[in-house]
Amino acid sequence: MRARNPLRSAGSWVLLLLIVVLVFAPFYWIGSSSFKTPPDVIKYPPSLFPPTWTLQNFQKLFASTDYPSYLTSSLFIALATTLITVTLATLAAYAIYRLEFPGRLTILRLMVGTYVFPSILLLIPLFQVMVQLGLINSLWSLVVANVTFTAPFSVWLMRAFLESIPLELEEAAAIDGAGFFQTLGLVILPLLRPGLATIAIYTFITVWTEFPFASQFIIDDAKRPLPVGLAAIIGQYQIDWGLLAAGAVFMALPVVILFAFVGRYFVEGLTTGALKE
């Protein structure tokens, strides 16, 4: 057995520590700023810990914004978009990567090609489409718009997961008399769970932070999702930094909670049985 090099081990720990600091420092800064008093939050040089702890930024946040309704809108849009994206992307990816039909690669390239357009370029035409569909000021407008951006990328993401499943499994299912949908539902989907989890998380987080469409398509304040609703607390000329930090904390908190606690079971549940012992 080879002895472990203590220097190398220490180097790994230092590197890991550096990465942890780099990743968590902005979160820490936002978190600690949200508990500082207004003079402390802008103090120069800044303090690492709040000299005086206060909840006034959070009180102001809840007093001056309709946070519960923003949260409800965000959850609806994110969950609906995730559900539709996962369903569409899975079926589309299976068809493109597993079935033989003319033009499938062209279709794939076209789908991935749509992803290269910055969404901002499509704001005006999409606004007009939503007006014609009667979806302006409806949360469904955001679900539809978001799916058009998340689904193509998700199809592409599924490629590696689909290619890791041997074709022989489908052939064995066919020999056992399974039809197309049985093969897909009973053989492929259970093995695709890690892929499904990946695109679900990708879609959820992408939609959670989406701003341009949400800002354009929703007119009523009560229907606004979190990024747009909380943007209102930032004045153009004056910024209440403590309030801004409190808003950022409560913007990130639902996602952190979701993926720190619920998300873990979600991913575990999906990946259970993906690999055979």
Partner: peptide, 21 residues
């Protein structure tokens, strides 16, 4: 009142005019 934000009101207003809303 329908509150907008300065950051993106220009494309939104142009879109709204084009869509006659």
């Amino acid at each position: 009142q329908e509150v907008q934000n300065w950051g993106d009101v220009i494309p939104k207003a142009l879109s709204a005019v084009r869509a006659r809303v």
